[in-house]
């Protein structure tokens, strides 16, 4: 589970006429603003190092202009880096020629787009089957695979429709089915749900989580929405001005924000709904003390509900049936107070 599927190492992306020459400035510590002022080049990404673990959802979060869409496009080389390497499943994709890169895109990765990017002149079935037909699979096999995944995302019966006849949420389901049809390990989702309205977005997030439970793809998910990031992420990477501000387990970031920027970010969210009992509990392997049992994966919101507002209550926290700790409601209250930045950078978990 913890084996890396994609490694991004020392990645730099600079936009401008003389980009390669600018790398040394960036390496010397120049940031986005200074480079634009001093050299007229846009620093897209600076010294990015991310290990994307197999079977996990890695969420890359940042505001617009933070370089997150540029970053995800490095994984399938829709954008070429200025410096650094991207290793997908053991291959350095910078060393691939055009044909082998196409082969890699066809077999190892798929992508879901913010604006759906479906072919307007082809039916839902043909759209969903696109990765197969691009590979050159036969019509019958393509249609069969496409039909299977359309059913899986809840679009059975819409095969003969055209994309413009579907709502945005339905279109993105087609986009998702198309990505699944390619049957590749890595799934890149570029703000896949940002164009959807909140209710549909939430149901699409559930769909992704449900699919993930069965398929355990390696997903890279881009978003600017912290709630979405916290809901989906196994590993959260926060980008700002082309640099990684902090990455790690979302719960950890929430409780230990590395700098004021992230502090600001996390101050608005409903902590009770995101934080889990196991992140807040005291790790005691105490003997049975008669407390009520609570699962470690429950949210604090659930714990508060169970306590009926009694601030002096404690729970016995269990995970997979064994006692792992004790949760005091006073700790819960403390955890709900937004944390100040610890001043540490790049705390990896």
């Amino acid at each position: 589970m913890t084996e890396s599927f994609v490694s991004i190492r020392n990645l730099y992306k600079i936009f401008g006429n003389n980009a390669p020459a600018m790398v040394s400035y960036a390496k010397a510590g120049m940031h986005k603003k200074d480079m634009l002022q001093a050299h007229g080049h846009v620093l897209g990404l600076r010294d990015i190092n991310v290990e994307i673990k197999k079977g996990e959802i890695t969420v890359i979060m940042g505001l617009s202009g933070s370089g997150k869409s540029t970053l995800i496009r490095h994984l399938n080389r829709l954008v070429d880096p200025t410096a650094g390497e991207v290793i997908v499943n053991g291959t350095d994709i910078m060393k691939l020629d055009r044909v082998r890169l196409q082969q890699l895109r066809r077999t190892q990765m798929s992508m879901v787009f913010q604006k759906f990017a479906l072919l307007p002149h082809e039916t839902v079935l043909r759209n969903a089957g696109m990765p197969c037909s691009v590979r050159g699979d036969g019509r019958a096999k393509t249609d069969e695979t496409a039909r299977k995944w359309l059913r899986r995302v809840g679009l059975a019966g819409s095969e003969a429709l055209y994309p413009h006849q579907l709502s945005g949420g339905m279109q993105q389901r087609v986009g998702l089915a198309r990505a699944l049809t390619s049957n590749s390990e890595l799934m890149l989702m570029d703000e896949a749900y940002s164009a959807l309205d909140p209710l549909i977005r939430s149901s699409m997030q559930d769909l992704l989580q449900e699919l993930q439970k069965d398929l355990q793809k390696t997903v890279v998910f881009i978003t600017h929405d912290l709630d979405e990031a916290l809901k989906l992420a196994d590993h959260l990477v926060i980008l700002k001005d082309g640099e990684i501000v902090q990455q790690g387990e979302p719960q950890y970031i929430l409780l230990n924000p590395a700098d004021p920027y992230i502090e600001d970010f996390v101050s608005d969210i409903n902590r009770a709904r995101v934080l889990r009992v196991r992140s807040v509990m005291e790790k005691t392997i105490a003997e049975d003390d008669g407390y009520e049992v609570l699962d470690g994966d429950e949210t604090l919101e659930r714990a508060i509900l169970r306590s009926h507002g009694a601030a002096d209550k404690s729970f016995a926290v269990h995970s997979d049936g064994t006692r792992v700790g004790t949760l005091k409601m006073t700790d819960v209250l403390k955890a709900l107070v937004p944390t100040a930045a610890t001043g540490r950078n790049h705390s990896n978990v």
Binding site: T107, Q114, A117, P131, V134, L188
Partner: peptide, 19 residues
Amino acid sequence: DVLEAGEAFGMTSWQKLYR
């Protein structure tokens, strides 16, 4: 975006042209 999608799924430039 649509063109990029084609590229992301490994279309050749000929496939991009006619699809």
